[in-house]
């Protein structure tokens, strides 16, 4: 799960500030590779702005995966059956794995995981704002799978063709695993929609609260996104925010009909001329304010994340101490 057209500004502006060290030949080789839709690998020369843009996007993506474990993790002990609990544990474990793949991809750009996690914990680095909303009922867990992961998949599939090799490879692995996340969510909601009126009302309430947040996950309209245009030129990003958002809406409306829920947008209707659904206006003010740290759960998520890291410190240190002791013993035995 992730995302939004990640790469949201976090104060730095690499495109403007990064001087380049490359020779004209190296630069020409990079430009030719991008123009031919080839792949850039870690040891290849790349413009500093390209490196910084990727670093920011991949680390934000990785952060989103591990913060994304929190809203659902809260529900593991309250899942309604053993089956749902096992499914949810598997899903949350997947998110942790996705975070690991992505931190690994970012490390190939010359940073360390410890630094990225420190940046997340200090609030310097961003993560997807979607996780700053609460998961209030069991139906929220289903909706997170169906809509949030559904939106994430739309965003992530084009990233499998990203011009940076390690990121593209990580995304292929992630997309393979992500499909189960969306389907289990839909399945959980379907079970509730076949249940009591109270259960059906819970699903509708959750859909009402999440729908607009999911549309915002695709990021601001392309017209307002300068980052977006540069990323497109570099082949980091392949499809614009608006087009992906439209794809998501077109795919979701029929699914909502099968489920029997109403999407909370009175302006949502089929436009035969465009062969797409039209939709109402998104509240970008709310999106920006959540991103800036004023959403309902920003503080709680970060605090939980930091606590988990601190509480696990002794395990990491003990494992290292053990490894060192073993190594010492082996050298002594050998001499």
């Amino acid at each position: 799960m992730y995302t939004q057209a990640m790469d949201v500004p976090d104060g730095s502006n690499p495109a403007a500030s990064a001087p380049d060290s490359g020779s004209p030949q190296q630069r020409a080789h990079f430009d030719a590779t991008i123009a031919a839709d080839g792949r850039i690998e870690p040891q290849d020369w790349m413009p500093e702005a390209y490196r910084q843009t990727l670093l920011r996007q991949i680390s934000q993506h990785a952060n989103s995966e591990i913060v994304g474990m929190l809203p659902e993790g809260n529900w593991i002990s309250r899942a309604p059956s053993l089956k749902r609990k096992a499914i949810l544990i598997a899903k949350v474990q997947d998110e942790g794995g996705h975070g690991l793949y992505l931190y690994g991809a970012a490390e190939t750009l010359g940073t360390s995981r410890a630094d990225m996690i420190a940046a997340l914990h200090s609030g310097r680095a961003k993560y997807s704002s979607i996780f700053n909303y609460p998961a209030l009922s069991w139906a929220d867990v289903g909706v997170i799978g169906w809509l949030v992961d559904g939106a994430a998949i739309m965003n992530q599939i084009p990233l499998c063709r990203c011009s940076y090799g390690p990121y593209a490879r990580a995304m292929i692995r992630i997309c393979k695993e992500e499909s189960f996340h969306q389907r289990q969510g839909f399945d959980a909601l379907l079970a509730m929609m076949r249940g009591t009126p109270a259960q059906q009302a819970m699903v509708q309430d959750a859909v009402n609260r999440w729908w607009w947040k999911c549309l915002a996950m695709f990021g601001p309209p392309d017209a307002d996104s300068e980052h977006s245009a540069q990323s497109m030129r570099w082949g980091i990003k392949r499809i614009g925010n608006d087009e992906l958002r439209q794809q998501f809406i077109d795919a979701t409306v029929p699914q909502a009909e099968v489920l029997g829920v109403t999407l909370p947008d009175p302006e949502l209707k089929w436009n035969a001329e465009r062969s797409h659904y039209d939709h109402g206006a998104i509240d970008w003010e709310e999106f920006r304010s959540t991103l800036a740290g004023y959403g309902p759960c920003n503080r709680e998520r970060l605090a939980t994340r930091v606590a988990a890291h601190e509480n696990g410190r002794w395990v990491r240190e003990a494992a290292l101490a053990h490894a060192r002791k073993q190594q010492q013993r082996n050298t002594e035995d050998a001499s």
């Binding site: 690991l100 690994g104 360390s112 410890a114 290292l320």
Partner: peptide
């Protein structure tokens, strides 16, 4: 004190008869 556990490259044999193939990396103490 190390900031991170050291980095390892991981190779997986998908089934008997095939080669081990690089599939990613991870941090671990040993």
């Amino acid at each position: 004190p190390l900031k991170d556990w050291p980095l390892w490259e991981v190779f997986v044999r998908s089934k008997q008869g095939l080669e081990h193939k690089h599939c990613g990396s991870l941090h671990a103490a040993d």
